[in-house]
Design a protein around this nucleic acid. Structure first.
Lengths: 248, 248
DNA sequence: CGATCAGTTGACGCGCATCAAGAGGCGTGG
DNA sequence: CCACGCCTCTTGATGCGCGTCAACTGATCG
């Protein structure tokens, strides 16, 4: 983890170019620029937030994909969500003391840093951005809700299809996957297991079964979904291909 | 569901009296009063929000307990969260079109109504309240995160203890349970099962085992936890007995 | 070139789902 | 006022989905 001298100016923020991410106007960009405290790079497997710590920053992901997870005392681990470009990290810990989860990079990532303590002021001074933050918080909640339904109600096979579809969908929204429904990302089967509440062995077997059935081709380092509609229906997942996300 | 003529004035809001709920100052109360559009009563098993609908309101619970759940096409149901006094309902659907979940009252409930379309203006005009809303959204997210850990990593017995402890804890925060660690609330075992991703039969058996072991006494209509610390440790649940929640 | 780690596959067993049926409470209508 | 239906809780029997233990492969790396 290191800080770079040369940070991208907000007006040149790569996220502004993504079609599914809502762009900001000049005034908002100026204000954000004031609020921004620099950038941070994290290498693969690097930690952005440690469980139980009390970090002074909020982050927006500029590039890369990360996981947010919680570890129990006895070593069991639950991956709570994946974090994509445009997502805000650290909202909860901004309010309720130390974070009860960790955030770790799956691939090298670049983050935009904000100061936690100027956060109330930030919300107060720019209503539209405050509104966007509430939007992001609500969206994150909706995602967790989906995961919850998957863990509570779905079988192993359904969960894996759900996760594959969801990952590809989110990747497309944040612009890191094309329309070919392929996502290149080094997720280990162990991580998949810890996300879906399955054992590693059963995850492996089920992935093989899915590969054989042709519904989802999840090979090491790459997810491909031959027929997106079929996969969505199987997992009872509803995509919204219209929706624009705000960010920062 | 019916609207009452006589709504409580915000300055007399019963929630203001709860020690664990953060009180508002005069100016904030005045502003809230402007934003408030009335009250609503729901009888037991009455619906506040229907899945797939596009309601024009946000609500704050004044009294009563509700469940928020999502039903799949094939009838499987996942209860996503319980809703207690002081909680805000409808944030997600305020942003992302129709709600993908339903909200139903467990007991007769009273709700404070706000208009969804004046929500952006509301956020813009009162920073402190905007801040509180972000706080509430973050808190809700933290709760879902806990549920996710329970569903993904815990055994049936652990899940049930977790849920019991969590319910009693939340009930105490919102002032509807005393320090005796008893919560009187008509939750069916079927609802418990749908919350925890267990079958009804197994839920029943596990509850009986817990009753026999003395860890949690969950009888129909009432939850009692003889030794809160022991139960928390078993479920690896960390209470925060200090934290004040904001509301509205 | 041993060590470590992700992926893979087999064997076995337990936790939990499913099917089934009965008991008790409560409201409703004949 | 009792009979009936419905709902919740309960308990038994059976079996499958998935966890666990264990071993082997191939890749990467110091």
């Amino acid at each position: 983890m290191n800080r770079r001298a040369q940070a991208v100016a907000c007006r040149n923020c790569p996220l502004q170019k993504q079609p599914r991410l809502r762009t900001l106007d000049e005034r908002q960009i100026d204000y954000l620029q004031d609020f921004k405290r620099g950038e941070m790079s994290v290498e693969r497997e690097g930690m952005v937030i440690e469980q139980g710590q009390f970090g002074p920053h909020l982050y927006t992901v500029l590039e890369g994909v990360l996981i947010r997870y919680r570890t129990l005392d006895d070593g069991r681990r639950q991956i709570v969500n994946f974090v994509f470009p445009g997502d805000l990290i650290g909202l909860q810990s901004a309010f309720e003391g130390p974070a009860n989860h960790a955030v770790e990079a799956l691939v090298e990532a670049r983050l935009c840093m904000f100061e936690r303590k100027s956060f109330p002021e930030f919300i107060g001074q720019h209503p539209r951005l405050a509104y966007d933050i509430v939007w992001l918080a609500a969206a994150e909640e909706t995602q967790l809700e989906e995961h919850l339904v998957a863990l509570g109600q779905r079988t192993a096979k359904e969960r894996l299809v759900y996760l594959a579809v969801w990952l590809v969908d989110r990747a497309q929204i944040s612009g890191i996957s094309d329309k070919g429904n392929t996502l290149t990302l080094p997720i280990t089967q162990s991580q998949v297991a810890d996300m879906l509440g399955l054992s590693l062995v059963h995850t492996n077997r089920t992935l093989r079964a899915l590969l054989d059935s042709g519904l989802v081709e999840w090979r090491p380092g790459e997810i491909h979904i031959p027929d997106m509609d079929a996969a969505c229906e199987f997992a009872q997942y509803e995509r919204d291909t219209e929706l624009e996300r705000p960010f920062i």
